[in-house]
Design a protein around this nucleic acid. Structure first.
Lengths: 351, 351
DNA sequence: CTGAAAGCGCTTACAG
DNA sequence: CTGAAAGCGCTTACAG
């Protein structure tokens, strides 16, 4: 019940024999303070176990020292890595993180963004495919520093960080082409997400360069998650003329593809080449190890926080966009296409 | 720069032609208000786009409507599931979540707990093996509602939720014994964690009941994570007389064991039985599907929030401990022990 | 059913 | 280098 045994700045002031303002100054590391005064205050703080009240501090115009992070869910390996990078950067800067999860509930993102903008945080990083138009203006009006991750934003005056999805997908497709594949299928990510769309573009470009323009039936929909990769593969492998290689837009989906292949008795890469995108930790762990497009996931998070911190510390610096590079990681799951005879035996065993 | 275009309760009051107190009352759903007055206020709020300032509200004695969650990291599948349950329960109660990650940094947990206790949240759930003694008293002094997950706490006056690790481990061991195994090895979890210790006890009890009392060399250390399971298995399988079954204290470690077995050319369960604990989603996905002890992970999170909400809404109800049941899920990774000849061929191929 | 006023714990010009 | 005072936006007795 006794909620009032909180030690305030005035308690400290009294036992140190100074004013509240002075205590506030030493707490905030203000420079021009007599060494003796500072020492007395510090001693009093220590003695009383003073801890600043974040709410009051921020209400009065100070900083909250917390950064808000808006994501849709934290289930995927990609998100786990991203959050690790974000959390790393936040805590090594001495700030705290407030993670808000929308779980794809419509409206939640706006609610959180507005709430957070209302003084709960010093800045905000948003990593969900979202209807930015609904709250980006609020963030700007309130001049809440913010940076977007992997989100498309027409007006280039918001800071953001992303990777070169298009050329990553392009290079992977060229890798498959170079191995001799022609019937290459791509399983897409959630098309609401900018990066999913960019990967398709990269894939199509490379295919077109190889003279393969009719790719429509080779591009099948997925949503970045494992089950969707599995289902798409089941359908693809059941086709009369199945692809010899499947390029999943995420490693997670590639694992689903591998599962579908295994169930059909197909060996990877002998009977089917399977590649992914992301390079999550599990990709080098699975058997066979997954060939994939590596994106520096943790780095993305760290950079986003870096940008945010810059803006928080010296506002008005203008928006900056970062595009990080991807790279091809060739491992065991990709190889030359199997001959048609072998494919037939495997793809239509029950016919 | 203009940080002051925030719509306050007084702006609303003015355009509605009432006092600030009245606005506050309708915002907080106070009952005795004239319908017409309420309507006017609501209209004004709508018109102005009013959003309550959480800091001010809480400073003035109201609720923050946010629940703090303290974990050490969110990398594991177990934690992902737990957080899903927690987040679910929090958001369906209309509150928000503030997730703090210590990443095993010493001191961080105390820092966070103190800060959160200082008015940032209405309540706190702690799910890290931690030196509670360092801050539990702070939580109590400030009467901040809190509940512990999976944490040992001597004085039974703190609410907590856990599962019956001991009998779960016992049943799994009996399952293996029933299959005919005698040389059963257990890879433990991080011994700082209560549940890891309880699982060992359950294992030992079942072994002792079967007359197997000399289990010391069969119990090897792990830390719940995949690599530690892999490493422990590498060591175990290289022994002159390796175990015929390995019971990993977490599914994650069991996956590591499977990997080690595969590298040695051993088939699961033909040559080696591998079982885990937790039943994370991946366990029914891997090949062969993992036999494991199921704990209702999301439910643990939901229950913890339930307890917390009860305490927040009607304080002083006293501490309550919940122990949820585990159950055995027999899948494909467990079977009868292989004969000694087969074991020898596989375990010492290079000797 | 409604308003005026004090107070939550802090920060920040303004003086000195 | 330090203090007194106002104010951040809200809630809550206290009156009426």
């Amino acid at each position: 019940m006794s909620d009032r045994d909180q030690v305030t700045i005035f308690d400290v002031a009294k036992t140190a024999g100074v004013s509240g303002s002075t205590v506030s100054r030493v707490v905030n590391g203000y420079e021009h303070i007599a060494p003796r005064t500072r020492a007395k205050v510090l001693a009093a703080m220590e003695e009383l176990g003073y801890v600043a009240d974040t709410r009051a501090r921020s209400l009065a115009g100070g900083k909250t020292n917390v950064i808000g992070v808006l994501v849709d869910g934290m289930g995927s390996a990609f998100m786990t890595e991203l959050l690790r990078g974000i959390d790393d950067a936040i805590s090594s800067s001495g700030m705290d993180m407030m993670l808000c999860t929308t779980n794809s509930r419509v409206g939640k993102e706006v609610e959180y963004a507005t709430k957070l903008a209302n003084g709960m945080v010093d800045g905000l990083v948003v990593a969900i495919p979202s209807e930015l138009s609904l709250y980006l203006s609020t963030l700007k009006d309130r001049s809440v520093p913010h940076v977007l991750i992997d989100i498309d934003n027409e007006d280039r005056d918001t800071s953001m960080v992303k990777v070169d999805n298009r050329s990553g997908a392009r290079r992977m497709t060229e890798h498959l082409l170079g191995l001799g594949h022609r019937r290459i299928s791509m399983i897409t990510g959630n098309l609401d997400v900018e990066s999913a769309r960019e990967r398709i573009v990269g894939f199509r470009e490379a295919m077109a360069d190889a003279g393969l323009v009719d790719t429509d039936e080779l591009v099948v929909p997925g949503d970045f998650n494992r089950p969707s990769g599995y289902e798409a593969a089941v359908e693809l492998l059941a086709r009369p003329v199945p692809p010899t290689a499947i390029f999943a837009s995420s490693d997670e989906m590639a694992f689903g593809v591998m599962r579908a292949a295994a169930e059909r008795g197909m060996l990877v890469p002998e009977h089917l080449t399977v590649v992914g995108f992301d390079d999550v930790p599990e990709s080098s762990w699975v058997q066979p190890a997954l060939t994939t497009v590596r994106q520096p996931i943790q780095e993305i998070g760290r950079r986003a926080i870096g940008l945010l911190l810059d803006e928080i510390r010296s506002p008005g610096g203008g928006a900056v966009s970062l595009e990080l590079k991807t790279s091809l990681v060739a491992r065991a799951s990709s190889g030359p296409p199997s001959d048609v005879g072998a494919m037939q035996r495997h793809t239509a065993p029950q016919s």
